[in-house]
Design a binder for these strands. Structure first.
Lengths: 144, 144
DNA sequence: GTCAGTGCAAAGATTTTGCACTTTG
DNA sequence: CAAAGTGCAAAATCTTTGCACTGAC
């Protein structure tokens, strides 16, 4: 895959060694519509006939998160952590409480607010987690 | 404690049986500065010499969440769920990535945004999870 | 008395860790 | 070659569940 060289560069810039597994995981997260759990990443790899250990997946996701190549999310109602690549476009998710569908939202209403909060609290704000939940149109109809 | 009658009423209104354990848990969450995990609630009860099983704590928190007497939160970087009583004043938390301190914030910048999003997506929005993270003043100094 | 609530023990799910082997730079 | 990465097995943590007993209404 041509774009794997990009992942290689990202790894290099974060002073991480370039391994096939890391590129594959970055690739998977990069091409996923919605954030994935460690188990889901592992499953995708297995489906692609890539042999890897689940604990390695966890370790890779951990180090990628640390280096900010990946974000770790905790979405409401889901007890496991989800991961997404750290796109330049910051996004949030709208989660359906019925069917658990996850809809990405590209607009973030919080940047102004964060600046304000920084002044008020003297925190050095690094980021935020926001997910919004409700019923998607389909699930609203099912209830009727 | 005089206010336990209030908890009793809340339980009644949610058609839950009034038990000592439930009132005690509501009481603990109500008087906690920051949200607590199931384990922490359990520990507080034990410290008060109240004998209860951890699984009962989980079951109570579950049913209280279901009845909206309590909110379940998933705060960034914490793999376990945290619970808070559902105060009339909706709040968020500012979490220090250094010392893990949790600072409640009473203002919510999202209500207007939610209305807008509801129109745009046709979701029936029920709520959101927001927590903001960064370094508190103390931890900023420690780094220098 | 009935049904919901609880304790206990056990299992399930997710995540982490120690150690030996392998690979990258 | 050294240091970082990986597989495997085992454990740690958090959470849920089945069943029998107890307590609320």
């Amino acid at each position: 895959m041509e774009r794997n060289s990009t992942y290689k560069d990202s790894l290099k810039q974060s002073s991480l060694k370039n391994t096939k597994h890391r590129c594959e995981i970055l690739n998977i997260l990069d091409h996923s519509e919605s954030p994935l759990s460690a188990g889901e990443v592992y499953k995708k790899l297995s489906d692609m006939n890539i042999k890897i250990n689940l604990s390695t997946v966890y370790r890779i996701l951990e180090v990628l998160t640390e280096k900010k190549l990946v974000n770790r999310l905790n979405i409401v109602g889901d007890k496991k952590a989800l991961y997404e690549t750290n796109k330049t476009t910051h996004r949030h998710y709208l989660v359906c409480t019925g069917c658990k569908m996850i809809l990405p939202i590209n607009y973030c209403p919080l940047s102004l607010y964060e600046a304000e909060l920084e002044k008020k609290t003297n925190f050095k704000i690094e980021g935020h987690n926001l997910d919004i939940y409700g019923l998607c149109p389909d699930c609203q109809n099912k209830i009727l």
